[in-house]
């Protein structure tokens, strides 16, 4: 069992992070906390993706020599880390920050209207005003 966990401990960590994030998104009542949870959730997924691209004993996917006139000798694939997950995750990071930005803007709208960011208080206010 321990062997099994160690051989894939990265996946375990990402799953735990993801659980923390997911729990915060659903269970926390403060909206900012929800967003923090969202960020953790997203970076956990990014961690997972990055993990899929790792190759033991390989280096960063930037060719050492300059591209110009690089000969036709075969580049050893095993020497470089898989670049595709990185590309995907760059996009995912941007998406995550954009979502955070929009969500924070919504938070400010909410705060203007209810003067609080606690879910239960807002529910109470809404109940009292009969909306």
């Amino acid at each position: 069992m321990l062997e099994y966990i160690i051989s894939k401990y990265n996946f375990w960590i990402y799953v735990i992070l993801m659980m923390i994030g997911l729990y915060a998104m659903m269970g926390k009542r403060n909206f900012v906390k929800k967003l923090i949870g969202m960020n953790i959730f997203q970076s956990a997924i990014i961690l997972f993706f990055v993990s899929t691209g790792v190759k033991a004993g390989a280096t960063v996917p930037i060719l050492s020599g300059h591209g110009h006139g690089h000969g036709h000798e075969l580049i050893e694939v095993a020497k470089y880390i898989n670049p595709l997950p990185h590309v995907l995750m760059l996009t995912a990071i941007v998406v995550s920050i954009a979502t955070t930005g929009v969500a924070l803007a919504v938070l400010i709208l909410i705060y203007r209207r209810y003067n609080t960011l606690e879910e239960d208080e807002i529910l109470k206010i809404r109940k009292d005003t009969g909306v």
Partner: peptide, 11 residues
């Protein structure tokens, strides 16, 4: 440390 320098830079 995992070799994803671009991602790390961005993060």
């Amino acid at each position: 440390e995992m070799g994803a320098v671009d991602v790390a830079f961005t993060e």
